[in-house]
Design a protein around this nucleic acid. Structure first.
Lengths: 221, 221, 221, 221
DNA sequence: GATGAATGAGTGTTCATTCAT
DNA sequence: CATGAATGAACACTCATTCAT
């Protein structure tokens, strides 16, 4: 009943109800009536805060994306090592953050991707996100590799991260975060190894002092 | 007009109309009425041949999966080199076959994944497919690497293939098949390279003497 | 496949499948497809033999009615006593014949009644049947009672028979034929007992010395 | 137009439209669209208030049943004579109340009976109703007769009432309430007569001075 | 005689959206 | 702010019927 400041609270409430609904019945069956019931509010209020259902969906997507970005940002701030490797690790870890590998988030991401193929507004959101992951990876690889190699490495690592996430999400089993991170790390190392000894394709061992560093790199984009 | 033996013809006709409809408006809006119109038949015929819409969707998915399998199988038969490397290349290439990187197929795959999170029957299909890619890769890597390494390599390559495919599908641009294949090849080579030099810090070295073997491996399933 | 004489066989086959279908799913859900499947024939054949669904329904009703009539007729032929009482008993018993108190018959009768309220052709069938029971009872009571009393007795006994049948059918339990017959007998006796006392204001007493004729009495009508 | 507290009004409105529709075209053809049109509301509102068509049908049945009960209850309250006879008369009369012998009610009852053979929820309703008529009759007969006789009398009278109602409904002509009540009265008297002179099986004549009495007994249940 | 492919109108139901209260 | 009554189009699905074979 409070007049002031209800907006952000209600919006958050409805976004979380949306995630819950998508988790329970899928995006296709996540009706406004169900979402409103889960949020404990009336049907009508949704258009009040989000104009229409698409608005709610888009807001929910932006919310998950911001969770992803925050997951990376928080890790980056805790970094002490400023090496590319440390930054890349942060990006990788952030993309497998708990906020991204739970049921509601995974189902919503998948539904979002499917929708983005036909909804221009979602497609735009999606491209921004995809590009962010790539460019964050690329800018870190760039510090260790020539541009061409950096681009390929970034493209590969981005794909590997998304692929690991995708297969984990689709498996139906609990997400094996550790294994996913390990595989992504290894790929990163293999790419970085090209820098040290351009004549070999071995990873560079000695400079990996477990450091972590405060780097940048927002997740899934 | 009713002829005898129309079943296979009509089924194929309706599956193709479904792909077309999904391409045009997305799976969410691919109504029976639209699919029937695209196929040039009446609404009612769909339940005659597929029981209900789910039956049509599942048949469509099976069709795309069989296309994928055939794409790999055809390449495998043309193979002259029986090495793991050659087989792995076939699997990679098959997964980026023209039948898989066109609009209708990509949109259908994405929609299928999203649906599989909530439809047990689709989930089953999906798991079978995912597992097939992994086990095909694994059995090839196994010929060159120790079991543990082979597993990790297979998991990584499967994820990389799916991730490259996913990012390509979501990009909205034409699929850059060549680049995707190149990145996947490189990953494959990096993994196979571990066998060569037993002296490095990598495990599983000596027993993979470049052996090759004739194996099989169908992609994405 | 025999050409000649298939008609009566097919018709009977389809009528029995109709009873079976009504028993299983109710008349509302007894589709032509289901009936054809139960009969082991194709959908299309029904219109060949019965023009349309209504024709099949009507034929099925006529079949049940004829079973009822045969049940009474058979008992009447076995009769040695020609008294009104004996004839009335035959009518009562015939109405609770096994052919009338089984699941398919009871469900079909009820559905038929409901339909007869809106289908003139069925309504006509129904009236004929109802009237037959009444007039058969009436003609027997007439042999023992004055016309007015006979009419009331017949109306009452007809209603009691139908009511006993109805409540038995609706109960969901096995039909207690014996009890129903006992109650109907008692009513008959109470009505016939009025004849004994010629001093009452009613006519037609003494001349009904049990004798009289083989009359008729078809069931439920 | 949406007002608060519309629920009871709309529900009643829709129930009456249902009766009207059943009267006009039968329950089989009483579509939601027709009912909504007769009620002057939109199709969608029905699921808003009754969940689905079955809910509306069940509510309509409960409404007719409550009318029946009220018809008996009102008569019972007006009773001055507390004799079993008076109470039984009230039950009989209530079952032929104007609310039960009009077209819509009769058609709805018949359709309800037919449906109750296949819809468990309706069957339950139906059994309750059937049992109520029987037990009300039985408890009154019990005051004048030994238990065994009372049970048989109640069973017989319940069947007679239902049978008279059924034949009246099916006749297609205007319901002859008076005649039906007269026949039921007579049956009641014949049964009650057993009490007075257990040594004879004659009905008790003299004590039937048209007494009425205030008794209880709800009809058809 | 018999099949089953094909139709297309009709069904109950769901749902995002609107808006008077 | 918030409700929930109300709409009406859209949906998947059913079905009696027709008819080429």
């Amino acid at each position: 009943m409070p007049k002031v400041g209800m907006q952000p609270i209600r919006r958050q409430q409805l976004i979380e109800a949306t995630l819950q609904a998508v988790d329970q019945v899928g995006m296709g069956d996540a009706s406004i009536a169900l979402i409103a019931r889960l949020a404990g509010v009336s049907n009508g209020i949704i258009s009040h805060y989000f104009k229409d259902k698409n608005g709610l969906i888009a807001a929910t997507m932006r919310y998950i994306m911001s969770m992803l970005n925050e997951g990376v940002a928080a890790r980056r701030q805790a970094l002490q090592d400023d090496s590319p490797r440390a930054h890349l690790r942060v990006i990788i870890e952030g993309n497998f953050d708990a906020s991204q590998v739970n049921g509601p988030a995974m189902k919503t991401w998948l539904a979002f991707w499917a929708s983005s193929m036909h909804q221009p507004s979602l497609h735009r959101l999606q491209r921004i996100n995809d590009h962010r992951l790539y460019s964050n990876l690329c800018s870190q690889f760039r510090r260790a590799l020539p541009l061409d190699q950096a681009r390929v490495a970034a493209r590969g690592l981005a794909a590997l991260i998304d692929g690991l996430w995708l297969r984990g999400a689709l498996s139906g089993d609990a997400f094996d975060t550790e294994q996913a991170i390990r595989i992504a790390y290894e790929y990163m190392e293999l790419q970085l190894a090209k820098q040290q000894r351009p004549d070999t394709h071995e990873p560079a061992p000695e400079d990996m002092r477990g450091t972590i560093a405060h780097s940048a790199g927002a997740p899934r984009d």
